[in-house]
């Protein structure tokens, strides 16, 4: 393609209403050749177009082990996401990507993995989870700690149920104090606290953390207490992006361009960054 800013057309094959303001799309490329050839890695992101309103950046929430489609999950907050919220099954939107780096999952074979996510930050982690569950035998113990403000705000409710039922996955769900319902079976408390109480062993374990900046900060402390080294802790950052390809000058944190050198970083790398996010 000669112009790097031109998206490919994708059709919305299915829509999942996750919460009152969060939706997921299952998207397939209109171009059949592209549908076949499209490849991405876990952790990468794309720019999704609502024509007439612009582009917005989300991670690819599906796993590359599931071919033929991509899934994205977004919250209706701005101009583009509100417009995407109006679309129905069969409608066309734009996609360009995949962009950015990825989680080095191949290096994690044989290790235990703990996933820690808060609210709308489960989608980037979901790609990693399915990537690992789809070849479950290559990895050790899998623990997922997921929390949201309220029960209603938990995304992927069906999948949470599935993971909860799987004997080879340990799922800990939590909601912030006050966010529980009478039927709520999970924990009540903030993710970092619940994580620390879960006493996940640090030995031979990789942690994948994703959530709002304040949650990441406290989770990094909690993981430190549990004995995790910063090199074994991965996270994915987000910043406002317009190009996705290191040109538009928005997403940089100091001299690091999130869209090109990120969005996946180890805690060691995060701690070395300029305080600009």
């Amino acid at each position: 393609m000669s112009n790097i800013y031109i998206p490919d057309l994708v059709t919305i094959e299915d829509i999942y209403e996750e919460t009152p303001d969060i939706r997921s799309f299952r998207l397939v490329f209109k171009d059949e050749k592209l549908r076949e050839s499209f490849e991405f890695k876990t952790g990468q992101f794309g720019l999704y177009s609502a024509f007439g309103l612009g582009e917005s950046t989300f991670c690819i929430a599906s796993s590359p082990t599931r071919k033929g489609y991509i899934q994205c999950t977004y919250r209706k907050t701005g101009r583009v996401t509100n417009a995407l919220g109006e679309l129905s099954i069969g409608d066309t939107m734009g996609f360009r990507g995949p962009y950015g780096n990825h989680f080095p999952i191949e290096e994690w074979k044989g290790k235990n993995i703990v996933f820690i996510a808060g609210g709308i930050a489960l989608p980037p982690v979901r790609s990693v989870i399915w990537n690992i569950l789809d070849r479950r035998e290559d990895f050790g113990d899998v623990t997922i700690v997921y929390g949201a403000k309220t029960v209603e705000d938990l995304v992927y409710k069906e999948e949470l149920k599935h993971w909860d039922e799987r004997p080879d996955v340990k799922l800990i769900q939590t909601v912030d104090p006050g966010g529980e319902t009478p039927e709520w079976q999970g924990e009540v408390g903030f993710v970092p606290t619940v994580l620390e109480e879960a006493k996940v062993p640090a030995e031979n374990t990789i942690a994948v953390v994703c959530g709002p900046p304040i949650m990441i900060k406290f989770c990094l402390n909690a993981l430190g207490t549990l004995g995790f080294s910063d090199d074994a802790v991965y996270t994915t950052l987000e910043n406002k992006m317009k190009c996705g390809v290191g040109k538009c000058g928005r997403c940089n944190v100091g001299d690091i361009y999130i869209c090109k050198e990120g969005p996946v970083y180890t805690a060691t790398e995060i701690k070395a960054m300029f305080d600009d996010f």
Binding site: G52, E55, C243, K247, C248, G249
Partner: peptide, 22 residues
């Protein structure tokens, strides 16, 4: 200075995607 914005301009039926200085 190289920063720019990418925006859509037009109606609900047709329009342009533009690259603008920012």
């Amino acid at each position: 200075c190289h920063c720019f914005d990418i925006i859509d301009e037009g109606t609900a039926f047709e329009g342009e995607r533009r690259k603008n200085w920012d």
